[in-house]
Simulated scan of single mutants.
Amino acid sequence: MENLHIVFWLLKDISWCMIWKPLGVAMIFPTLIISLIIAWRTRQFMSELCHNVAISLWISANSYWMISEFFHFDTLVIWGEITCKHVALVPFVSGLLILAYYYIWYLPRHKETSESI
């Protein structure tokens, strides 16, 4: 499943690069769904869960950014110099915060029971 996930992800990003809108948008769904399934299946291991949720957030941010460029609303100004493309920072930063939580707070407190990183 993880290998198939990478194939979908690459197809999505190649479609973005080549501006193949239908394929790019279609590849969002299997890519994101499989990443969420992988996160769910690894939920018993905090390390895997945090990393896989961060990946799902990265795919979400990346997909939103792609859609904003495909449909030409990426440069629309929301406020000041913040554009619609910058909305992608919400899931990007959320993923970073989850990883920061894991590495800064969780892992140091659970070293004796931690799984391999």
Rank of each mutant, 00 (worst) to 15 (best):
L32H: 07
A39D: 03
F45M: 03
A26I: 11
V7C: 04
C50M: 12
E69W: 10
A61F: 02
F8I: 06
I34M: 15
E112D: 06
V77E: 14
S116V: 15
W40N: 09
V25S: 02
N62Q: 13
E48D: 10
T31C: 11
L57S: 02
S116Q: 12
F73S: 14
W20D: 04
I6R: 12
T42Q: 13
S47I: 02
T75H: 11
L11I: 10
F29P: 14
C84V: 13
E81M: 05
K12H: 13
D74N: 14
L4Q: 14
I6M: 13
V25E: 00
E69T: 05
Y103G: 06
H86R: 01
K85S: 11
F71C: 11
R43K: 12
L32M: 15
L57W: 03
T42L: 09
I104R: 03
V77G: 03
I33M: 14
S15Q: 06
Q44L: 08
I14T: 06
H72W: 08
I33P: 10
K12T: 01
S56M: 08
M18E: 02
R43P: 00
I82V: 15
L4S: 12
I67R: 06
C50S: 13
F29T: 12
V87T: 13
R109P: 13
W65H: 15
K12S: 10
S56H: 05
H51V: 01
L57H: 04
S47K: 14
S60C: 12
A54W: 06
W79G: 00
Y103D: 09
